[in-house]
Design a protein around this nucleic acid. Structure first.
Lengths: 113, 113
DNA sequence: ACAACATATAAAGATATTATGATATATAAA
DNA sequence: TTTATATATCATAATATCTTTATATGTTGT
């Protein structure tokens, strides 16, 4: 088993994997899907309505999110239900929102001076 | 001041800002820069050596990271020193690495069955 | 087996991102 | 003021991503 040393520089391969992981949240449609699934498990049709994108698009982005490890799926009858695979994803989104909010605040302050 | 309700769906504009924010970490060079700066403040030339990319590339990616709110800079003589603007960035990277590590473990398990 | 619905996949063009090389700007030293 | 060094910016070619449309796959009910 390979250990995970946060402070050590990563190998090129590891770095690319991490970059790919963040790529998962770098698209508005995928971000909305993740947000929707943080509230509750949903099937594809429900997601199509929730995020306002085409079925094809949602399916594609779900494949991407699945590959990145954000979501998992299970079949229930003719539906396929997706859910967030790891609760830590919620924390990541929360931190990001806080940072963005504070950053926007700083920018607002600066323009006043 | 606008409140930050994590569970409520975001407006399209907010969603795009968050997606842009994660875009910051979705590129290997930018990811390496952030990792390097989490260890210590560095100038551009030091970053060029640390991440193994061209000066032009590093400057460009720094501009992107600055825009996203990951880094800030200050001038010291003829050098410009960059540092991580928010310690919460460290937590985000740590969580991401943990999720990726666990996910890789799951994939490894599945291929054995 | 057939029809209807749910989801996934594939191909195409449109758009965005990245890497590269050249050049501009700014600071420091001579 | 000239030269050297550090950083930023710009143009563009190469590459990757996204959107759209069409089609394939799989499930349920008749």
């Amino acid at each position: 088993m390979q250990d995970l040393n946060i402070s050590a520089p990563d190998s090129t391969v590891q770095t690319e994997i991490y970059a790919k992981f963040f790529h998962g949240l770098s698209n508005p449609t995928r971000f909305k899907i993740v947000e929707a699934l943080l509230n509750r498990e949903m099937n594809v049709s429900q997601l199509v309505e929730a995020v306002g994108a085409s079925q094809s698009q949602v399916s594609n982005q779900l494949a991407c999110l699945k590959w990145c490890g954000y979501v998992t799926s299970r079949q229930e009858g003719k539906y396929i239900l997706y859910r967030i695979s790891d609760e830590r994803v919620r924390t990541i989104l929360q931190l990001a929102k806080e940072i963005v909010a504070d950053n926007a605040e700083h920018i607002r302050c600066r323009t006043r001076m």
